[in-house]
Write a protein that binds this DNA or RNA. Structure first.
Lengths: 193, 193
DNA sequence: GTCTATAGAAGGATAGAC
DNA sequence: GTCTATCCTTCTATAGAC
């Protein structure tokens, strides 16, 4: 008890912030904008968060938490191709779930600088690198990987594609990932001998 | 005569602005920042451009001009695959030439809003769409295209990859584009009967 | 938990001297 | 073509009442 489940002020604020960050960019979104959108005043926002950076971190951290879970699951596989496939699937689902353009947020300069200042948030990139490219990454692997990672958010910015059914969009994103990283259609079950 | 060739104030300013925009994002780059970087004052900047938007347009327009040329060349081909191949090659070269991360700038929210206000700049997207996907675009074509377009800038943000030789990086970018858009290795000359 | 009020810095933009 | 000086707005952030 003592724990409200929804509209929990803080949670609602983070949702609002995420929406505005995704639409206008972090730098262009002022605390005033967030306050207006929620129908409160700026001081009301400062009750929940001491600084703007704290809000941005609050928005970004859940994404990294899921990324961490995805990596842990992928790293458990023995075969490299299975690891990559698991990673791609997890990433696509992450992007689809938090539709608020994953990579637009991740590509945001404001967020990038914040991440640089938080060593524990930098680690995820090393882990992805290791997972996909191994200890000695070569450009032939890294270039497609980075295009996929950076490009994943692109289709969601297009109104027509964003309107697509989640399942349909998911298949197309997965197919693109498979093509880029050269995975066969299915790692496990399919095509029996 | 009467036309200075370099350090032409205006040109030098645009170069500086492009560098800062690419590094920190447009919104986070103030006219003060640009002035400081050039060793002049804010008012000095305002002599060359009446508003910040004018500077951003000045930075963006050359890119669109080249994009326009690329599209015109690609549209001249009869076969669809040849059109796409020509487009991919042109785009990769554009990104490599103006290394200042093409898609980071294009993905910038500030730039996006400016473009929306300039009808003649919106056209390019319709042309690409038509070129690659035809009059009735389907998701199976659009999703990979958007991933490629959005993701092209990714590798250039990675210090290790950005340090690569232009020719090497070019080949990897082209290969990624071919995989995503499913082009065979060469459209014309190669593999004779 | 939300408000009013305000401080203090930084932003875009202009006027006018040199 | 560049400067000083200034204006107005908006920004982050804080203090203190309700």
């Amino acid at each position: 008890m003592g724990q409200r489940k929804r509209g929990d002020g803080r949670e609602q604020l983070l949702e609002t912030a995420l929406r505005l960050f995704g639409r206008d960019g972090v730098e262009a979104t002022s605390l005033q904008d967030i306050a207006d959108e929620m129908g409160v005043t700026k001081a009301g926002v400062y009750y929940h968060f001491k600084t703007k950076d704290e809000i941005v971190l609050g928005v970004v951290e859940p994404v990294f938490a899921r990324l961490d879970a995805i990596l842990t699951r992928a790293e458990a596989h023995r075969a490299r191709s299975a690891r990559i496939e698991e990673f791609v699937i997890g990433l696509v689902d992450l992007v689809l779930d938090s539709r608020i353009r994953f990579s637009a947020l991740m590509g945001d300069p404001y967020v990038a600088k914040l991440i640089e200042q938080h060593p524990n948030l930098i680690t995820w990139w090393h882990r992805i690198r290791m997972l996909v490219a191994g200890p000695d990454p070569d450009p032939a692997t890294m270039v497609p990987l980075l295009i996929f990672l950076t490009g994943l958010g692109g289709p969601l910015n297009d109104p027509q594609l964003a309107a697509l059914d989640n399942a349909v969009l998911r298949e197309h994103l997965l197919e693109s990932g498979r093509r880029l990283l050269q995975l066969r259609k299915r790692a496990g079950a399919a095509t029996p001998p």
